[in-house]
Amino acid sequence: MGDDRADNPYISPVYGEYDGFPPMLMQVGGDEALLNDTLKVAKKAEKAGVDVTQTTYDGMFHVFQMLFPELEEANEAWEEAGAFIESIFS
């Protein structure tokens, strides 16, 4: 964070403004330290009119998606990401 303030939206997206954002996919683990922040950002973006897809993967941890292909939940998350991208560009 250096000399910046914690409420800088580039440091904490909770403080960001989401008007005019494109559709967003937000994935978070249910045991993730940033779970509440993710849910707050999703709600804030939805309030700003953004099409938000937010999925909480029960029992998962920070960056669980990186355990693809060994972890089933990671596989599901990547499949969801692929479908989301296809839906945007089709």
Results as ranks from 00 to 15, higher is better:
2 G>S: 13
2 G>T: 11
4 D>E: 11
5 R>L: 12
5 R>P: 00
5 R>D: 13
5 R>S: 13
6 A>S: 12
6 A>K: 08
6 A>V: 14
9 P>D: 06
10 Y>N: 10
10 Y>T: 07
12 S>N: 15
14 V>P: 00
15 Y>G: 03
16 G>N: 05
16 G>K: 07
17 E>R: 15
18 Y>C: 06
18 Y>H: 08
18 Y>F: 15
19 D>G: 11
19 D>S: 13
19 D>W: 10
19 D>T: 13
20 G>F: 08
21 F>L: 14
22 P>W: 05
23 P>H: 08
24 M>Y: 03
27 Q>C: 14
27 Q>V: 08
28 V>N: 09
32 E>Y: 02
35 L>P: 03
36 N>R: 10
36 N>M: 12
37 D>Y: 01
38 T>Y: 04
38 T>V: 11
39 L>N: 04
41 V>Y: 00
43 K>H: 08
43 K>F: 02
43 K>R: 15
44 K>S: 15
46 E>C: 01
47 K>G: 13
50 V>W: 02
54 Q>F: 02
55 T>K: 15
57 Y>L: 03
57 Y>V: 02
59 G>E: 09
60 M>P: 01
61 F>N: 12
61 F>E: 12
65 Q>V: 06
65 Q>L: 04
65 Q>C: 05
65 Q>E: 13
65 Q>Y: 04
67 L>H: 08
68 F>Y: 15
68 F>E: 08
69 P>R: 02
69 P>E: 06
71 L>R: 04
72 E>M: 07
74 A>G: 13
75 N>V: 15
76 E>H: 12
76 E>N: 14
77 A>L: 07
78 W>P: 00
81 A>F: 10
81 A>S: 14
82 G>E: 09
83 A>I: 02
84 F>W: 06
84 F>D: 05
85 I>G: 07
85 I>Y: 12
86 E>W: 02
86 E>F: 04
87 S>N: 14
88 I>M: 14
88 I>V: 14
88 I>G: 02
89 F>R: 10
90 S>R: 11
